[in-house]
Amino acid sequence: MNALYALLAASLFGCALYMMLSRNLVRLLLGLSLLATAVNIMLFLAGHLRSVRPPLIAEGTDTLRESADPLPQALILTAIVIGFALTVVLSALALRAYRAHGTLNTGEIRSAEHLGDPSAHEAGGDR
């Protein structure tokens, strides 16, 4: 079962990388979202799948008996929410970039490169 989950995580990971290398901004951000899922599953696997019981302490006992590992779950829980926030902020950026440039192709969005040559100032200005 572990091997199949490893295959799942690795497949999601590879597909996410391929999508992120695209020059389309939305593909990139969906790829990033996919990457977050892949990494969460990897993190989950790192805790080993030892039980299907949730890490809840049963009534009447003081300590946790046989259950899934709570530690990676706590890590992943915040990672899911942070990944969600990242995806949405990136989509807002993509939206603004489209409004400003009329394209989603990162190869055509080059306003940062058109700011000019940073070395031109000193060579021309000071002498």
Partner: peptide, 27 residues
């Protein structure tokens, strides 16, 4: 890269689990 990741994950599943921190939280 995904092949590398697959290898790492399979390898990881063969190791014994480090439980020190989880056991503390459980207790």
């Amino acid at each position: 890269f995904s092949l590398v990741v697959f290898g790492v994950l399979v390898d990881m599943s063969t190791t014994s689990r480090a439980t020190l921190i989880s056991d503390f939280f459980a207790a």
